[in-house]
Design a protein around this nucleic acid. Sequence first.
DNA 1: GACTAAACGAGACGGTACGTCCGGTCTTCTG
DNA 2: CAGAAGACCGGACGTACCGTCTCGTTTAGTC
Lengths: 201, 201, 201, 201
Amino acid sequence: MSLDDVTENPGRPRAGRPRSEQSRSAVVRATSELLHEFGLRAMTTEQIAARSGASKATIYKWWPNKYGVAIDAFLSELQADSPDPDTGSARTDFTVWLRGLCRFYSGPSGRVFAQLFGEAQFDPEIATALRDGLVRSRRAALESIWERGVARGELRGDIAAGVAIDLIIGPALYRLMAGHGELDDDAADAIVDAALRGLSR
Amino acid sequence: MSLDDVTENPGRPRAGRPRSEQSRSAVVRATSELLHEFGLRAMTTEQIAARSGASKATIYKWWPNKYGVAIDAFLSELQADSPDPDTGSARTDFTVWLRGLCRFYSGPSGRVFAQLFGEAQFDPEIATALRDGLVRSRRAALESIWERGVARGELRGDIAAGVAIDLIIGPALYRLMAGHGELDDDAADAIVDAALRGLSR
Amino acid sequence: MSLDDVTENPGRPRAGRPRSEQSRSAVVRATSELLHEFGLRAMTTEQIAARSGASKATIYKWWPNKYGVAIDAFLSELQADSPDPDTGSARTDFTVWLRGLCRFYSGPSGRVFAQLFGEAQFDPEIATALRDGLVRSRRAALESIWERGVARGELRGDIAAGVAIDLIIGPALYRLMAGHGELDDDAADAIVDAALRGLSR
Amino acid sequence: MSLDDVTENPGRPRAGRPRSEQSRSAVVRATSELLHEFGLRAMTTEQIAARSGASKATIYKWWPNKYGVAIDAFLSELQADSPDPDTGSARTDFTVWLRGLCRFYSGPSGRVFAQLFGEAQFDPEIATALRDGLVRSRRAALESIWERGVARGELRGDIAAGVAIDLIIGPALYRLMAGHGELDDDAADAIVDAALRGLSR
DNA sequence: GACTAAACGAGACGGTACGTCCGGTCTTCTG
DNA sequence: CAGAAGACCGGACGTACCGTCTCGTTTAGTC
């Protein structure tokens, strides 16, 4: 969202008062809180302004709307995201990784994530921002696991990486969005096991 | 939503003017159109009222809000839903069924479905209605395929049905919601193939 | 309002079920109560129907709207209205009569009367009904007092009766509507005294 | 209504965008027009918004409802109201003043005034606003006439000023509200004549 | 004793205005 | 000149009441 806007040539500081870093971070922090307290939709721009001490005009100057702020806020929560557990075994890697995802989904941030994903169905910009900021990096992590596994001969080389990744993430996301099943460690293990061994006898 | 309210003992007509079937169906039909024309969020209750000829008061009498109407309208479009393709081969059954789902997802109703699913992330009532009206019946269809396949010895009996079903539907839903991959027949085939054979060598 | 509609030739009873007297009186009684409890505007037709046991359709069949019912209800409260106190002295007659009016105005019915009068400013039918059912009879009573006084030589024959009556009623009504002064016996006495003696030295 | 809120210390301008005078006056002007075109009740808040160019939210921010706006609009029409005709004769003063009132009552503003007075029977806030903004100033004008007349020995000092004023205004208001008599110059003259000379022989 | 005609209770309906809320833009003054 | 304060327009929301309607039921007089 406003991420790329910040990249300026550092040699030539623009005239006038520079953007207040304090204001920016206060907005992001307030939005994080509000996201967890009220949810994405119930949270209003006015609330963000009131809690952060920034004015609405400032918010709209740097972000397109509250969803833009929410994405920034949400992504900034996931600092050390998507660790790549290189254990030497693809099955273990997948299991560790998917357990992490399930814990994330079923934790407090899971609700917020699901709402962002839900909102993305209405707003292409949110969809793009989410894909760029979250989906891509996660798929990249899984792709590393996949390729190492293929290289080691543990996994089938004749299956497209994209499909394999969908087979791991898809079931978990489905459970998150539809809410028809659990999202605990056992669920992660069961999904990885079924995906690796396959459904056929 | 208001589906079950209609079930009454037909022998004893309740006092007062009965609910107008014409009004009800006009509302549902108008909502269907508006859903495809404008989308779930942009569509307004006033538009439904104007196009259907019903009054806002009548709409709010029978549905909690426009989302309630939208669910009724959307489900009424899927009359002969979830056919169960019993071909004798589990692989073929899965393939035929998932191809149908992908066509549905990538067709005009797919957008509406995604938006309803998105909205469900904010409103538990929509989530429940969607689970009851759509998710359950689809999973039931897949469960039939699964059990027949297990009985015939084609599929593994030691995998939980729920996980197996998630492995088929999850990847497709993931692509619909995240928009990172295709949803054509080839995609369906690839998913079924990977899920059945498994990722492990 | 619907008063005159009832006068029919009693010899020929019309076909069909006759109007229910119980329903009529229940509506009028309920309306009386609601007028005092909630006031003319806050009272709704639906409340009248609910409390009286009659249906809205029945009410609208016999009265044009709730204001029509209210007028009937209000007038039916004033059974023995406008007594003509013929004491032999015009001053005493006026005083007794105006004291009665002031008590009426400051009593519970005064509020209802003022609201009917207020509503009449928006609806000519209410204005006509009020003039016919209330204003005229009161002015007639005062006219009797006036004419007896003139005949006895107590009052000026060279002042139009209408103006004289306005001079007695007007100040009291003004106080009721504007609410700037008392409406007790002393007020009535002061008005009559000033009107009879005149403001000039 | 919102009249007194405007009085602020002018030396210290409050923070934020100041209230738009253009918006305020456009609302008041539009309301004036609508009052005369449609009347107090038929006029809607939405019409005011549409004609003035202001939004409903802005109107509701500064006035409690359309009646509040109507009072402001109506009072702003009567800028140089209630002249005090000091002719040297109390009878002439009263006559001139009451003729003015009758012309006002029977003119286009009379209808509006009557409706506001009617509405005041239902809403204490309107009643208060009307008393403060209109009734009081008019009574004050008449009180000046009265006191000058008493001082000159033309009028009786033993009659309370309030009663005397009611005797002049009351009959005219009565005719306006009940609509049973004329409100022209002759009517004004007759009322003043009867009030001054008294009804008694 | 059926038949007819009107009145009735119940309650759904279209219409219209209400007052509220939020989004996104603007205009002022302050640091 | 960035930013806080906050007023502004636009427009959807859900509610309330009005007066009309459509049912099935009840209560008379008529045949």
